[in-house]
Design a protein around this nucleic acid. Sequence first.
DNA 1: TTCATCATATATCAAAGTGATATATTTTTC
DNA 2: GAAAAATATATCACTTTGATATATGATGAA
Lengths: 182, 182
Amino acid sequence: MANERKIDCVILGLLSHEELTGYEIKKRMDTTLKYFWSASYGSIYPALSDLVSRGLATKREDTESKRNKQIYSITEEGCRYLREWLTVPVEKDELRYETLLKLFFGNEQETKQALTHIKAFEEKIEKELPYLLEAEKVLKACLNEDAAHKYYLLTVKFGIKTYQAYLEWCEEAKKFLMDSGA
Amino acid sequence: MANERKIDCVILGLLSHEELTGYEIKKRMDTTLKYFWSASYGSIYPALSDLVSRGLATKREDTESKRNKQIYSITEEGCRYLREWLTVPVEKDELRYETLLKLFFGNEQETKQALTHIKAFEEKIEKELPYLLEAEKVLKACLNEDAAHKYYLLTVKFGIKTYQAYLEWCEEAKKFLMDSGA
DNA sequence: TTCATCATATATCAAAGTGATATATTTTTC
DNA sequence: GAAAAATATATCACTTTGATATATGATGAA
């Protein structure tokens, strides 16, 4: 258990809670996991085939719906693999903010440009924060319904804390740039 | 100017301030830019060759040192390219925290495991925060020496703000998990 | 002084992952 | 009933990582 592909672990993590199609997995990525992880179709579909061939998941065709649905489930072996991965220490937490990159090289540009990037960042965060706050409310209300909710709430709280810190920084950064002579 | 490779832009950004070798560029990545960007040798060296062939940078052999040093400089064309990129809106700010992923799937594990991951995260942040605080002090002291320092300080302040938010979250998360019955 | 270790320096490559695109069907909306 | 949106799978060129190989200069301890 040294070099696990992250995509395998995320998919198994999602499947450990419910059966899903590739499309639904992508949706989870773009909503629930969005604030701390992402994945593309180009990694999800091949990974699903691979998981099946390795016996970590199984696939069945959906007969009820009219759609060409491939429903994936985790196997016992898959559960073991996931559990094992969860015990291994975290390898990497990575932040890759183009906003900070453009700001860092800002001496090449006008103060105005820097302010534009900061404002765009601020707006994006302000737009997303309400969803996190709503999620917090919902999760707090149904904390006892599922043991997993406790952990979901923790990741949501992480998002809220950092987003609030971002907004504070935006305020200070704007003030700093405007004071220091635009 | 739609699809710029990020690696080209970071390298040009660094070269816009000083001449550098590939090795030195990697060092900048691992120290100064570390908190919001990263890059590997496997992308830096090919990108440097490519930048030269596109006329955005020039290469000269270092004759003074005994080492096999290839020193790269930005060209006028490269400066234009960089300036142009800096004006284009940010495409993506991405956070990819394995810690949160393992926490999110934590219902599969013991509370103890979750606490272990949180503590490891906390320790890592606590270890790195002093460097950011030191950088802040240094930059504040020599703010007027270089126009770029203003922007460096902003990115450092971003790091400090978020790291402090992380530490607050760690405290709360640990308390929450221990209270909710370990 | 010599030997090991560390830092400097460049280069390459398999593997992982992205982002875009193609295709087709069902469901919703106007 | 036509158009638009959502569901669903699949593929591929391209970017980047992470590991590894190779070699030499600098440092310091024995």
